[in-house]
Design a protein around this nucleic acid. Structure first.
Length: 674
DNA sequence: CTTCTCCCTGTTTTT
DNA sequence: CAGGGAGAAG
């Protein structure tokens, strides 16, 4: 049964040509793709099923526009990650055999907003050196204000800082009032409604005074800029006369508004998406954006891409069966001409160890059979689901990278280092100040906050922190010594004309002793991360760009595992959350932990969220080209109850065994011996 | 009053 | 495994 046959697949047509000739679009694309690529003007909605050549279509579209006289600089390509945009534009460049594509603007909504606001923010009285807060920074700021306002100091049931940040952010992403948001998603917090509202208002003021923008502000201030300042709107709309948005099903209402406003002058918008792959409702995305697009842009041309070029038909049958029950959608059924010997398989393992051993062993067998490690991936619902597997892979010396889970720049020690640089860029950045100050021995939240307030009120230069501390009455002692060293560091950096990487190196030198004190157990691992950070810094020419982009575009590498500086994945297996696997594909895919409580996740109860989990599984299985394994352990360990019997995921249980045959694992003689 | 330390808990997904 | 809470120490 493991006899693997060689499958001859047609190579994707096109993507190479002699210079000087025009691309042969009709030969390279199917009729639906061609229609999208050569769409003249006005709004268009491309409903693109998984693996239907969506990216390819966008690439050819950009090339076609350029070949037909559209200036590259007037094309805007909004994608889900910067990397997606860069990869696409790189391919356009190869396609056209010229560097023209480099002038195309591309990136995420947030990074686009960042650039526009830095250049045009003055009409909003926004300083160009504003700091961007990530969700953890936002939560910290809220917590500071909560303490100051004396809210929930005694009440144990008062929401934690992360929850507060989530409520406030969700309301803004869904264009709701706080009351509406609490009613809809946090009914158990309604009793704290007034306190949360007061906090939200204080938070707005706090950010405005200190030049701080959180993720939501980036989008909302852009909307404000475009809505309230007609000349700016017209200028920007004229500048980008061709707008393309990828993964439109994962945009939220604010982003949809940005699109509407940006296209005000011409309506030349092409959005591409798949309602069946909408998996970001939890952060406010609304796949209705796709369903409603034709109403928002009258005269929209709708083009459906249904032919799948990725997966075997047996895998698509499974995908179609999974999504068949979704209640509201653009009806479409994926089909392909690809068929092969293997079918998806449901694998029942005794327990988690067994599941891990199965994956590791199968990966090795496949590698023996000629499938390179980078052509395989293991996908899961949540970051921590792969912990046991990671140990097993390490034990067997199988190299892997993990995508998703805790991000590199979210690790405490990385944030510590960056805080020093952020203070340099924006001396009013109270959040970063507090972080840097409380690292010092003898400086806690109280003294730290007092010093920050003083620095901001006095508009003092960062290097003046020690003098300001003395003026504030800090007595000589360990805290004064620390503050003096911090002041010397910052004063030196403010003077320095060095590159960002050189400044970072100085911060690292200062920070290393603090790191060793703070993490006596595992500072070596963290020091390696700092090395990696230093390598990343080499790419940037300006400090401002570096600190902004590190927040907006965190590198996909997780902290754990090999935080390798090299980015090529040759000979490396991929482990990934399904969310981070979006848009990618592999020859062989394993999806693990398909049991109730894990997938769907335990905390998911309401209908809408369950539907999203279903779509998530759909995304997972459509990542596979040739082979697909879904697995789950029969017994799972839960700390509270010990070993319990698990139930297979409802999404799998309801499927016809025809589309997903089941198998179980048995301990064989030689395996038991090893 | 402030900071430090130790123990507890409870873990989705991400710009 | 980190973030928060409680209690001890400065």
């Amino acid at each position: 049964m493991d006899e693997r046959t060689i499958v001859v697949r047609p190579a994707p047509p096109g993507e190479r040509r002699a210079t000087g000739t025009r691309l042969d679009y009709a030969a390279a694309l199917n009729p639906a793709q061609l229609a999208a690529v050569t769409h003249r003007q006005g709004p268009a909605l491309v409903v693109a099923g998984a693996g239907s050549g969506k990216t390819r279509t966008l690439i050819y579209r950009v090339a076609w526009l350029i070949e037909n006289g559209v200036a590259p600089a007037s094309i805007l390509l909004l994608t889900f990650t910067r990397r997606a945009a860069e990869e696409m534009l790189g391919r356009v460049e190869r396609l056209l055999g010229s560097a023209a594509a480099r002038a195309v603007a591309g990136g995420t909504f947030h990074s686009f907003a960042n650039l526009v606001l830095r250049r045009n923010g003055s009409v909003l009285e926004l300083r160009p050196n504003f700091t961007i807060l990530d969700s953890a920074d936002a939560a910290d700021a809220l917590n500071l204000l909560r303490a100051r306002m004396g809210l929930g100091s005694k009440d144990r049931r008062f929401p934690k800082k992360g929850t507060l940040a989530e409520v406030i952010s969700m309301a803004r992403n869904k264009c709701r009032t706080l009351e509406e948001e609490l009613q809809a998603d946090f009914p158990h917090l309604i009793e704290h409604g007034a306190a949360i509202a007061a906090l939200a208002e204080a938070y707005q003021g706090y950010k405005a005074e200190r030049g701080l923008l959180d993720y939501d502000d980036l989008l909302w201030r852009l909307v404000e800029l475009l809505e309230k300042h007609q000349p700016t709107r017209e200028r920007l709309s004229e500048r980008w006369r061709q707008i393309m948005v990828d993964e439109f099903q994962d945009t939220n209402l604010v982003q949809a508004r940005v699109v509407r406003l940006l296209a005000a002058a011409h309506d030349n918008v092409m959005v591409v998406g798949d309602d069946a792959q909408s998996i970001y409702a939890f952060r406010g995305a609304n796949y209705r954006n796709i369903l409603d697009f034709p109403a928002v842009f009258p005269g929209t041309r709708v083009i459906k891409l249904e032919q799948n070029y990725r997966s075997y038909q047996s895998i698509l049958d499974l995908a179609n069966a999974i999504i068949a029950r979704a209640p509201e959608k653009y009806a479409k059924t994926l089909f392909t001409t690809r068929s092969g010997p293997s079918r998806p398989l449901l694998v029942r393992a005794e327990d988690e160890r067994m599941q891990s051993r199965f994956v590791a062993q199968r990966v090795l067998e496949l590698r023996e059979a000629g499938v390179a490690l980078e052509e395989m991936a293991v996908l899961f619902r949540s970051g921590f689901h792969s912990f046991d597997l990671e140990l097993e892979l390490q034990r067997r010396d199988i190299p892997f990278v993990k995508r998703g889970g805790l991000k590199f720049v979210e690790a405490a020690h990385i944030k510590d280092v960056l805080a020093h640089l952020r203070v340099l860029v924006n001396p009013a950045d109270a959040v970063s100040w507090l972080r840097a100050l409380t690292l010092l021995p003898g400086v806690g939240s109280r003294l730290g906050a007092a010093l920050v307030d003083r620095m901001v009120a006095q508009r003092a230069a960062p290097g003046a922190i020690a003098e300001q501390a003395a003026l504030a009455g800090v007595k000589a002692g360990p805290s004064r010594d620390g503050l003096r060293r911090l002041g010397e560091l910052l004063a030196g950096l403010a003077q320095s004309r060095g590159r960002p990487a050189e400044k970072l190196a100085q911060v690292l030198e200062y920070y290393r002793p603090l790191l060793r004190d703070a993490y006596p157990d595992d500072f070596p691992r963290r020091e390696r991360d700092l090395e990696h950070l230093h390598n990343l810094a080499e790419r940037y020419r300006s400090l401002e760009a570096m600190v902004a982009e590190m927040v907006l575009e965190p590198t996909a590498d997780a902290v754990a595992g090999v935080a390798g500086a090299d980015r090529d994945r040759e000979g490396i297996l991929t482990l990934s959350t399904i969310h981070s696997a979006k848009g990618l594909e592999w020859r062989v895919v394993f999806v693990i932990w398909l049991c109730e409580g894990r997938f769907p996740a335990a905390q998911v109860v309401d209908e809408q969220a369950l539907e999203e989990e279903r779509r998530l599984l759909y995304v997972a299985v459509t990542r596979a080209r040739d082979e697909l394994y879904l697995s789950y352990p029969v017994y799972m360990f839960q700390r509270a109850q010990g070993y319990t019997m698990s139930a297979v995921s409802r999404f799998v249980a309801e499927l016809d065994p025809e589309v997903l045959p089941a198998a179980m694992l048995e301990e064989s003689e030689d395996e038991a011996a090893s």
